[in-house]
């Protein structure tokens, strides 16, 4: 399905951009106030970040401020969707069970896991990611417009690594080339609709 990606220890080590870089670039563009958080998240390995970001709802802890509002943040949406897409597209899901032991061993030995990277994506795959980002962002309390803006930024950033894209992997998503399915390209429609 996706060429140029290989699985090693459950993590993709192809030459595509790292998920964390994609997240950082997108957050820098659409929610710069969350950059310190992305920086903090970057200190953990991808599996830990995804596992803990995926938890919904707050924890009731003694001497906390209380179960208040859940902030609608961009970084968790982007990280979770892009990570999931990267893993699915690389077929890493199938080997996840087998990698459990390795993960434990790695933790015991305190060896950092290789960061997950995003393989090259087709237009259809980018459109699917756009749809998922919008859906997830809306679910997490971000408005429709904001959700679309985030999805556009994600797709724009990922498109830089698409075949024929001029940007090098890991380059900031500041390119001028319009990504497939972006708002300007698809008019009022979303990639999922287009």
């Amino acid at each position: 399905m996706v060429s140029g990606a290989a699985s090693s220890g459950g993590h993709l080590i192809s030459g595509g951009p790292r998920v964390r870089d994609v997240v950082r670039d997108v957050v820098a563009q659409v929610a710069p106030e969350e950059l310190p958080l992305v920086e903090a998240l970057a200190r953990f390995d991808d599996a830990s970040v995804v596992r803990r970001l995926a938890r919904r709802g707050g924890r009731r802890e003694p001497l906390g401020f209380g179960l208040g509002e859940i902030a609608a943040m961009v970084a968790p949406v982007v990280w979770l969707v892009v990570d999931e897409a990267a893993r699915q597209l690389a077929g890493a899901v199938a080997s996840r069970a087998a990698t459990g032991t390795r993960t434990v061993m790695r933790r015991v030995l305190r060896r950092p896991a290789a960061p997950v990277t995003v393989p090259e994506l087709t237009r259809e795959q980018l459109a699917e990611i756009h749809r998922r980002v919008v859906e997830s962002a809306v679910q997490r309390g971000l408005g429709d417009k904001r959700a679309t803006a985030i999805a556009d930024a994600v797709v724009t950033r990922l498109a830089l690594t698409a075949p024929g894209a001029p940007g090098a992997p890991g380059a900031p998503a500041q390119g001028t080339q319009e990504p497939p399915g972006s708002g300007s390209t698809a008019g009022s429609g979303t990639p999922a609709q287009g």
């Binding site: 929610a31 958080l37 903090a40 924890r59 003694p62 001497l63 401020f65 902030a71 943040m73």
Partner: peptide, 30 residues
């Protein structure tokens, strides 16, 4: 800082002599 906690709160733990305040990610974002 617990960057993965999306709530806009914080929590304190430890002891009176050596307390640790943990800021949740949502609080920092806000």
């Amino acid at each position: 800082v617990d960057p993965t906690a999306a709530s806009t709160g914080a929590v304190v733990f430890g002891s009176n002599r050596r307390p640790t305040v943990c800021l949740h990610g949502g609080l920092l974002a806000r």
